[in-house]
Design a protein around this nucleic acid. Structure first.
Lengths: 345, 345
DNA sequence: GTGAAAGCGCTAACAC
DNA sequence: GTGTTAGCGCTTTCAC
């Protein structure tokens, strides 16, 4: 690991190891990659020299020569929304022993930035791309189509994918939640969620929710949207505002668990009869809910699982397995957890 | 963006653009990188051809030729701990307009994995490395020392850094919290935290906390440690267990806000007089706390700020600015927020 | 089992 | 303003 005293700060090359060990560059390369037959003695000599010098191979040169890159581009909207770190965690763990490494890019929910990040990533010729959502700019879509590597669009299956797709149907999720709420006898329902110009999944959930209500001949009584700030306290504020405006509501559907949890805490404090007089539900199934005084109804969005599956698809395809056709679309089924905030008749 | 009909799936090269535009490869390269003087007409012709073909430059080749890589390696223990996504968010935003791109690696709090991830990263010859913590294996430290690029160790300043360091003193943070608690008149204090074989920062906070208590002639009455599971509900369970065991405690110090919040919810439900009879405090200053029925005392760990600062150092150094000496150690000062769970005398 | 030669797709440096 | 030449540090291929 130590560097020689006459240290020039020039990064070490294969040649340095070759000279230090008296073995050709080619054989050094073979040893370092565990490829081809090398005698045990040469092997040891090379490894010893490499270790002693503190040689770190240059993957840039390696990638250029071999046309192989062990990087998987992952493009997500944000780190702030708890959901995406969880997806990354799933990707990261599934990639663990594949020799592949995730490289993360963030779009901040901006299609322009998504385009830039994607371009940037593709310029590193990754072994695959995992990207959140099905909605992309025309250019971004064209890049994905021509990337020449596996592309997995994640989180959402409601739409047309470029290649493989792993996610849930947010439209159906919304619809199912509506059905569960109606089945429980609630009728005067309010919706609280994010402003969603670019949050297509939240939008689809709301659309599905509205469809579910419409099928039962009812429609939303009130809606409230927010952006920015602490979701928990936003949930409180919005709930207070909505109940002040529409005191006769008997159900509040939140577009995510954090604002739902805020609303729940507010309702409990105010002494509302939950779930008798007022029912509540969120979305995502965040672990956080387990610690609340009473469990918010929610739906698991299968975040880690989506990450894992997507990474597996990339890994399999990258390893040369064919199967381009089999796993085009993987739809996971989120399950409603009634918790303590939807009454059972 | 469209590819020609006789599409061979071979990635396009500069040569393709050169031929399509009738301009030399070198000039095409100049246009695409906005470098050197190129006449407006050639420029247009090249851009038009590149766009039409859907050319994406190969940064691998570019990096090898120019010996420049616009990647910054970021090594964190986990995505699951809210803290690190926040740091990433800070890094990501500070790198925004620098042309640098973060590449994230995860260690799962394992020194061996840290070593592997670091090796992997360095093999891409990044422009800099940002790595959480000051504790590394001997090999990892040697790699950092010989990396030949800026290295910023973040989160913690209690120890010896390799190069630049940006963080807070967890030891002092613990000590200050102890002082604040004692100043408020609490005396029988319990500590609840993670099992921390590899969580050096939590360990240092606890050590500092103990020092602070010792200075006032007192010591911890009870301690409880957990690992895994939902922090919020763990906070509840641990609090219940500890108060059952040591009912005469008058203060609970939690190693993070999530378990603290769980404990707080539990205490409020049980009708404890907080902060009169029982005080509580956590650590981190997570946004979440804003939505709780009453605000948990905490200390801001300056997570985003640490990310920003670290990224700025890398960006500045990478851009050739000297200043190797000036900003070796940046210590941020976390501020105690008493909230509603430490009484004021 | 080992080595030599020829690139991978770009850019630095220099010529014109 | 534009083109030519010579690599960057590896791996592929083929010879021995």
């Amino acid at each position: 690991m130590a560097r020689s005293p006459n240290d020039t700060r020039r990064p070490l090359t294969l040649r340095d190891v070759s000279e230090a060990s008296g073995v050709s560059e080619m054989t050094v390369s073979r040893v370092l990659r565990n490829r081809g037959d090398v005698s045990e003695t040469t092997r040891e000599r090379v490894l010893e020299a490499a270790r002693r010098l503190g040689y770190v191979p240059n993957k840039i040169a390696g990638a250029l020569a071999s046309q192989r890159v062990n990087l998987v581009g992952v493009i997500i909207p944000s780190f702030s929304n708890l959901v995406f770190p969880e997806v990354l965690s799933g990707i990261s763990s599934a990639l663990e022993d594949t020799g592949l490494q995730p490289v993360v890019g963030v779009t901040d929910y901006s299609p322009e930035k998504e385009e830039r990040v994607l371009y940037e990533m593709l310029s590193w010729r990754p072994s695959g791309v995992i990207i959140a959502g099905l909605e992309h700019s025309v250019n971004a879509r064209a890049m994905l189509e021509n990337a020449g590597v596996p592309v997995v669009e994640i989180m959402d299956v409601d739409g047309e994918g470029v290649d493989a797709v792993v996610g849930i149907s947010h439209r159906r999720a919304g619809r199912h939640m509506a059905e569960a709420i109606i089945a429980a006898g609630y009728r005067r329902i309010g919706f609280l969620g994010t402003k969603m110009p670019e949050d297509h999944r939240a939008r689809k959930r709301l659309e599905g929710f509205n469809e579910g209500l419409a099928a039962a001949g009812i429609s939303l009584v009130d809606t409230e949207f927010y952006s920015g700030g602490s979701a928990l306290s936003k949930g409180r504020e919005m709930t207070e505002a909505m109940l002040a405006r529409s005191p006769d509501l008997d159900f509040l559907y939140y577009s995510n668990d954090m604002i739902g949890a805020g609303g729940l805490l507010y309702c409990l404090e105010k002494g509302f009869d939950v779930p008798g007089q007022l029912g509540l539900a969120g979305f995502n199934g965040v672990e956080l809910l387990d610690g609340l005084p009473c469990k918010l109804a929610t739906m698991d969005a299968c975040r880690r699982e989506i990450g894992r599956k997507a990474a597996q698809i990339v890994a399999r395809r990258a390893s040369g397995a064919a199967g381009e056709a089999e796993d085009q679309i993987v739809e996971l089924q989120p399950v409603i957890q009634l918790g303590d905030t939807i009454r059972t008749l």
